[in-house]
Nucleic acid binder design. Sequence first.
DNA 1: TCAGAATGCCGAATGAAATTCGGCCTGATA
DNA 2: TATCAGGCCGAATTTCATTCGGCATTCTGA
Lengths: 144, 144
Amino acid sequence: MDDIDRALVLRLQQDAGQSYAALGAAVGLSAGATHERVRKLRERGVIRRTTVDVDPAAVGSGVLAYVMVDSNAWMGESGEAFAAIPEIQEAHIIAGSASVMVKVRTATTGQLQDVLRRLYAIDGVIGTHATVVLDTFFERPLPL
Amino acid sequence: MDDIDRALVLRLQQDAGQSYAALGAAVGLSAGATHERVRKLRERGVIRRTTVDVDPAAVGSGVLAYVMVDSNAWMGESGEAFAAIPEIQEAHIIAGSASVMVKVRTATTGQLQDVLRRLYAIDGVIGTHATVVLDTFFERPLPL
DNA sequence: TCAGAATGCCGAATGAAATTCGGCCTGATA
DNA sequence: TATCAGGCCGAATTTCATTCGGCATTCTGA
């Protein structure tokens, strides 16, 4: 993981569709060497996968909310219960008054309400506190 | 935006590196037609870009926190002030007691503290409330 | 310090994939 | 029903990914 690797990851985050030749030229390597570097970054798990960034509103997920989930038990093994709710995009164990925080995307606030209902159905969950996002300034890749 | 488009977006989210031939076979289209569909999805902005998913810990961002930012003024035009802090990965205007919520990734909690310091320096910011993530269950693509 | 091994890079060769296009079919329009 | 636009297929062409031999540099251990 040297400066070249970091530069490669940075540029791939910005555009994973460019050719290895272009990518290599940007960091001063041949296409072959660039290919090998990127292959190893994947192998090591630094790059997990290549994906596309989708406009949530365009695919029917215009409502974004963060939900703090309160519980009366240790939630450390409940990951799958949260994963079973497809509208949940992220789920984290947190330090603080609540024990879990989830990021939810739905088409409408009605569906958001339904997600809250399903959260309550999870073992140990005793309360939720939803924070609705009114506007997103930005969502961007990791700093490097 | 029909069922085929949705299937394409779904599969591209899972793996944007596959060939148009494979992608087309999965949805019942030729490589050429698939190429054209995807081109239009990009053109319409449904697909914003193709990128790589990076392991944060591997690039020196092992600490994740969400920070509620309190203010004494309308923050609607302050997006750039938040964007100027590279450790902030997302920034949203929210409904509720705080006015802005940001997602922060740093290498250490010391750097997190430094980010809070810089948040306080933004015009109108009068307080922060950080929630540190202890463990991430999952982070995944949009539901479709 | 020196031989051997390992690593990383370059440049060329080869096969696979992206991209382009003409022609055909279907559904909508008037 | 005649016309037109949109979408798909399949082939042709160009570009790119991937693989490899050979060379230089660095690392290891004696």
